[in-house]
């Protein structure tokens, strides 16, 4: 018997089941990850596991054109990680700018109230 036609598809099916379980576990980890960077690490790992799954499907289904899909999927997974990180850095910078602005406005209000309070006390002590 030829092992490449009888045993290899079973091996591939088992490998795909293990990969799917890994992807589900990583999805759960991505869901409960406390912060943005944990989630992006999880997305990166899910991309790798999906590429492995597609590559297993190439031989399991004997469809060679799925290979091109795996290449494109690897590229897009990297692009997704790059865009998500850049977006989060931009959001954080905007948050810092807003925080600095509001702190400065608080400082100005505080100075103005201090001045008004001092004037009132001065007038009161005069009269």
């Amino acid at each position: 018997m030829d092992p490449l036609t009888t045993l290899a598809p079973r091996m591939l099916t088992g490998a795909m089941v293990i990969l799917a379980a890994c992807a589900l576990a990583t999805l759960f980890r991505t869901f409960i990850g406390p912060r943005m960077s944990d989630r992006i690490v999880g997305v990166n790992m899910i991309g790798t596991q999906a590429v492995c799954l597609i590559v297993c499907l190439v031989l399991r289904l004997r469809e060679d054109w799925l290979m091109d899909i795996a290449i494109v999927y690897a590229m897009f997974s990297f692009l997704a990680v790059a865009v998500l990180t850049k977006m989060d850095i931009g959001v954080y910078r905007q948050w810092r700018i807003d925080q600095e602005k509001s702190r400065r406005r608080h400082q100005e209000t505080r100075e103005a109230y201090k001045k008004a309070h001092a004037d009132r006390r001065h007038r009161r002590s005069k009269s």
């Binding site: 960077s37 690897a74 990297f78 990680v81 954080y92």
Partner: peptide, 18 residues
């Protein structure tokens, strides 16, 4: 691409810094 992605995640982690 994987080291570049790791570098970007590290950059984000160092910038956001929480």
């Amino acid at each position: 691409t994987s080291p570049v992605a790791s570098h970007l995640i590290m950059l984000m982690e160092m910038t956001v810094g929480r």
